[in-house]
Structures are given as structure tokens and as C-alpha cells.
Design a protein around this nucleic acid. Structure first.
Lengths: 92, 92
DNA sequence: TTGACATCTGCACACTTGCTCATGTATTCA
DNA sequence: TGAATACATGAGCAAGTGTGCAGATGTCAA
């Protein structure tokens, strides 16, 4: 149950959700992700490190670029279901 | 997308996941939840307040007791899917 | 080689978070 | 009424977290 909380916790950060969301459309390199989420490449790299450690994303290196992609068929479902929840239940 | 992260963040704490997990078996009062998760009633009440604000749980008052229950048909699914994920993909 | 580029990582710091403690409110029972 | 119970809430603190900065590594092109 602690591991469950850890997965949720990784997705419980705006930056990381935006990264994961961006990756649902296909693999992206770090600099593209950085411009997509509007943060420094350093910050994105730090977050990708966490997502990588939890095996939520995988990396494919091509020259000096590092392409990240989702490494989990459940994450897309979790994200989709939660988006649906948020849309259905408007916050007070 | 920020709201999505907020839902994940709420489920991303061991105490709150245990509370939600306990509530999947039916409604519980605060003191029962406190003994189930092994924390003070104050601590549990604080967390329930957050879950309540996000409409993940609802409260039914009966005398001096407050019975909490899941107020979201998605949460059970999220919890189940994530449990499955954790079991399928053992951490390194 | 030299330089530019893409990424990673250690460190520091501001900020957040979950808990305990103390107190307050509301209900029940004697 | 008074005391006990169940819960809620605000303050404060220790611990954790995300980010920028600086520097290191590795790659490509000239």
C-alpha cells in the first residue's frame, strides 16, 4: 500500500503530470519537455529521474538527445480516469 | 491538469491511501479510522478534511459520531488499477 | 582540438506537508 | 447541570520536496 501511495505521489505533482501527459502523445526529448512545461531542462531532468526510478518512463538515447516515453500501460488509464473524474465532479 | 495532480497528490500519502482503502469496505467513523491507520484522531481528522474538500469522501453525522464514506465511484477503480500496477511491476 | 549542445547531478534554499499539542464545539448520559 | 465522549481546528515544528545554479559528462560538427 505504500508503493501504491508512491505511484500516486509521483503523479501528484503538476510538473510531473504535465510531463506524463505530454508523453501520452509520443516520446519527447528533454529540451522539448522543458519548453512544453515551461521549466528549466535541469528541473525536468530531476523529475524525469524520479519517474524513471519508478519505471513510469523509459529513456532511449540517440546521440546527445534523450527521448523519454511512457513505460507503463496503466499510467495512461489512470490519467484518463482521473481526468474524467475531475471533469465530472467540479470543485466547490 | 492541476486538478488532476491534486487528486493524485491526495492519494499520494500513505495515511490517506490507507484511509481510502479502509473506506472501500464501507463507511467508518473517525475513531475507527484512527485505530485502523494507527494515528491520532486529530491527524485523521486533518486528512479527512482534505479528502472532504476534494469530494473524495462524504460525511454522515449521527449523534456525536461522524461516519465517512467514499463519495466517488472512480476512486475505487483508481486504487484497484494502481494496486494491479504495483503488483505487476516490481520495483528495482 | 575547440566549441557548442544536450543532459545529468550535487548542493542550497525557499516552500510545502503531516504530525502533535492545545483548544473549541457539539452531543450524550448521569 | 456537569462530565465524558467524538470530532474539528489553529498553531507550531521537524521533515520532506521542487527548483535554480554551477559544474561534470558525453556527443556532434568544424
Amino acid at each position: 500500500m505504500r508503493d501504491v501511495a508512491e505511484v500516486f505521489n509521483l503523479l501528484g505533482d503538476p510538473t510531473r503530470v504535465r510531463i506524463v501527459d505530454a508523453l501520452t502523445h509520443g516520446e519527447r526529448c528533454v529540451c522539448d519537455l522543458a519548453s512544453l512545461v515551461g521549466l528549466s531542462e535541469s528541473a525536468v531532468s530531476h523529475q524525469l529521474r524520479l519517474l524513471r526510478a519508478a519505471r513510469l518512463v523509459r529513456v532511449r538515447r540517440a546521440g546527445r538527445l534523450a527521448f523519454y516515453a511512457l513505460d507503463d500501460h496503466h499510467v495512461v488509464g489512470l490519467l484518463r480516469d482521473t481526468c474524467r473524474h475531475v471533469e465530472e465532479e467540479p470543485r466547490a
